[in-house]
Amino acid sequence: MIRDLLRDRGFVAGAVIATGMVLVAVTAPLLAALAGQDYTTYHDTLLDSARGGVPIGAFGGISGEHWLGVEPGTGRDLFARLVYGAQVSLGVGIGATVLEVLLGVTVGVAAGLGGRWADAGLSRVIDLVLSVPSLVLAISLLAIVPQDWPRPIILAVVIAVLGWGGTARISRGETLTLRTRDYVAAAQVAGAPWWRVARREILPGLTAPILTYAALLLPTNMVVEAGLSFLGVGVRPPTPSWGQMLSTATTWFRADPAYVFLPGLLLFLTLLSFVLVANGLRRVLDPRQREVLR
């Protein structure tokens, strides 16, 4: 299987970029220290105030000290803000995805293995979650959450709570298929309790589809985080996030194109890498797709 994956160039490229991004996020404080910068210090002298606060110098004020230039209007180091922004973007994206998978699989498997009434009840709950206009609800939820609660965690929880429906539905469907298999039926007849059936017999069969789905969910969740930060209900200043940077960049895209380009490029690359990884996983794990691969 690993060999199949490594033969997929898209997967390899995606995996390399994704790993790189995760590394950047994890080592953000180190990288910023290496550059000798932090993400909060204002550098007023690097801005042309009369021109609205655009960075002085080419391509957003790139210099030996500020490797990627400075943020217009504040003069904060863009490199430091971008690497710290990766923490929020990836952290919230991964956190939300993990929560969604936990919640979705639990509910999905319970619905699939439970009786008629449990299934009917849980399925309606899943329908409800899927039909809720999640962005609107997320904005309202985030607006009323007390401000001293840790923002990135709240973001991940809100995104997950509103977005586990898909995982649950897939898990339920797979469970319904799996429970008709002989080995599951055998375990049940042998008197294994339902939680053991779920853990021993069902979950291993769910791994492939859920892993693939999660790899696709992750970029979606990152986009949602970027969107919420763009709309001003994401992380609080001065914490940077790519979505929030893109939001401020909209007023600068002509005067300082570098400021739009950099967070946009990073977000694009990260999303693309995860989609590539997801595609690779799907091809390898899904028997029908394996034929296509050859």
């Binding site: 007023d44 801005l47 105030s49 009369a50 021109r51 609205g52 504040t74 003069g75």
Partner: peptide
Amino acid sequence: SVVNALGGSA
């Protein structure tokens, strides 16, 4: 920095 945050000295 407040001036710059509000759109610069213009």
